[in-house]
Design a protein around this nucleic acid. Structure first.
Length: 271
DNA sequence: CTTTACGCCTGACGGC
DNA sequence: TGCCGTCAGGCGTAAA
């Protein structure tokens, strides 16, 4: 699934293709995504010029002269740049045809993704307004986590995946960051010392930055790569590695469901 | 306010 | 080979 680093890589990949381009045509092949793709999207967008492409958490924002297209790729979404005229397959739901002759195509087999349109400040949109800080921005650090965790009894893993605490941390990176910080995913968020939150914040930044770096090398040229990025070949240390030996202590990695999500951890290293 | 459960979807996978 | 049940997984939402 596309996580924050993938979304960031997609943003960097598509932005040069999209920016300053006029939208010539919008084709919707499937309206039923997480929410119904707004009727009249074409009317709203055609003729608009794309100003820039931003990311907030896992949302992509295509800001145009008329409003902002908000995209979320859900579990299985991807974007690619194709030639208009290439017939979309059954999982390709939306095309933005641009004046430069290119076409941005959204594919999303599971349809957990979303395509929304707003003419207001997109950051004030109900879906975005209550997001916590960007994990790679200075507003995210151990002090923030520690402060927000006060009195919380929920497992730290759930806390870290709460978008109001910090934006864009999914199961993979929560699992990896907790492993690197040596914190047990089931520990109550409010019972973790400030210094350990410093380590956790650093771990979150580290895994995300590594993955973004990896994405940059994996995806040399978004346009000619004729495919959206899949999973980055990031070396995962815990996620999906249940049963393997912990790379630090050799203990077998365990898996347990915490907050409705599978969690992998080392019972010896993570406390 | 916090916490928990649920549901939206389909491809992959295991069992038979 | 094919059919079927199960599950993952982000995240908004309703309910507790």
């Amino acid at each position: 699934m596309p996580e924050l680093p993938e979304i960031e890589t997609i943003r960097r990949g598509v932005a040069p293709v999209l920016v300053d381009q006029r939208v010539e045509h919008v084709a919707v092949y499937q309206r039923r995504l997480r929410w119904t793709v707004p009727p009249g999207l074409g009317r709203a967008m055609v003729g608009a010029s794309i100003r820039d492409v931003l990311r907030r958490g896992k949302y992509l924002l295509l800001r145009t002269t008329r409003g902002t297209l908000i995209l979320h790729l859900g579990m299985s979404g991807s974007l690619r740049v194709v030639d208009p005229g290439v017939t979309p397959d059954k999982h390709e739901h939306l095309d933005l045809v641009l004046a430069n002759g290119r076409c941005l195509r959204l594919r999303d087999p599971r349809r957990f993704g979303a395509v929304l349109w707003t003419t207001e400040d997109p950051l004030a949109h109900p879906l975005l307004a209550h997001l916590g800080p960007e994990p790679l921005d200075p507003g995210f650090d151990g002090a923030w986590l520690h402060q927000r965790a006060r009195g919380r009894r929920a497992p730290v893993k759930a806390f870290l995946m709460d978008a109001r605490v910090v934006a864009g941390i999914g199961n993979i990176y929560a699992t990896e960051a907790l492993f690197l910080a040596g914190i047990h995913p089931g520990r109550a968020a409010g019972r973790i010392a400030r210094a350990r939150y410093d380590a956790l914040a650093a771990a979150v930044r580290g895994v995300l930055q590594d993955a973004i770096r990896q994405g940059g090398t994996t995806l040399r040229d978004f346009v000619r790569s004729d495919g959206a990025p899949g999973y980055f070949s990031l070396r995962l240390r815990a996620y999906g590695k249940q049963g393997d030996a912990c790379e630090r202590c050799g203990h077998g990695l365990l898996t347990r469901v915490i907050a409705q999500r599978s969690s992998v951890y080392c019972a010896r290293c993570q406390r």
